[in-house]
């Protein structure tokens, strides 16, 4: 007797639930628009997806004109730094489940660098200040084999070797937004990487470059850079160490 009514096809066991997520993207086409504007997109996402997957879905299925940078898509190349809900993040490292999807997700280009199209900015000013700190080994001695270094000497600058030059830190800095001449956190982090390297001979050169009105003294310790860094580098701490090294006159 106990015939059960045919149930609605139950969800397949283990099926992953999809959510409709609203993305609001700040669009700008230099050939058509005088000003950037916001545009809404609805996409079906899994909670394990990333914001980058949402941008892919928009570009591939809804609007092919959406422009953004990404290369490796795994948090190493540093191409897809953008402002997600008002904070600088890598789109490829920001999971949908970590965002509040009951509200729309705001996505826009990083701040302080010239906007070229949609989520793409001109990175040249950023790389120019990177080049100015001479981010390469400068050593006069020619060792027989390799340049030896103790574990402690290596640990001294370990944190700042992790930089991927995504510009999330530099473009989160309120000083950089208003003063484009400021070297910015990323350049100082990469200077720190060589200033405190025992194998490098040119720490003094880099300290002189950064002991400038537009150098480390522009840092106002707002800690936006430390919070924005997708590699977890303690950026403000590195800048403070360079400040101290300049005051001491040696690393």
């Amino acid at each position: 007797m106990a015939t059960t009514a045919p149930e609605a096809p139950a969800q397949e066991v283990g099926a992953v639930q999809a959510f409709t997520v609203t993305l609001i993207v700040r669009r700008f086409d230099p050939e058509k628009d005088a000003e950037p504007h916001w545009q809404d997109f609805d996409v079906e996402m899994y909670s394990t997806d990333r914001v980058l997957d949402a941008l892919h879905k928009i570009k591939w299925d809804q609007d092919g004109t959406l422009a953004f940078r990404r290369s490796c898509a795994h948090g190493i190349c540093g191409s897809d730094a953008m402002r997600i809900n008002g904070r600088n993040r890598l789109a490829c490292k920001t999971l949908i489940k970590d965002l509040d999807i009951s509200k729309p997700i705001y996505v826009e280009a990083i701040k302080g660098l010239p906007l070229e199209k949609d989520l793409i900015v001109d990175m040249e000013p950023f790389f120019e200040s990177y080049r100015q700190v001479q981010p390469f080994l400068i050593a006069s001695s020619k060792p027989e084999k390799e340049r030896l270094q103790t574990i402690e000497q290596r640990a001294r600058f370990d944190d700042t070797t992790k930089c991927i030059l995504c510009a999330a830190c530099t473009s989160s800095c309120p000083v950089f937004w208003t003063d484009g001449q400021y070297f910015g956190p990323a350049a100082i982090v990469n200077a720190h990487r060589f200033i405190f390297d025992s194998r490098d001979d040119a720490a003094q050169v880099r300290l002189d470059i950064l002991n400038d009105k537009e150098g480390v003294w522009r840092c106002r310790t707002t800690f936006n850079c430390s919070e924005a860094c997708p590699r977890g580098i303690e950026v403000t701490k590195a800048i403070a160490e360079v400040k101290q090294a300049i005051l001491r006159g040696k690393p």
Partner: peptide, 9 residues
């Protein structure tokens, strides 16, 4: 653009 959402610092 949105206001940058910084923290205590």
């Amino acid at each position: 653009g949105t206001l940058y959402r910084g923290h205590e610092g």
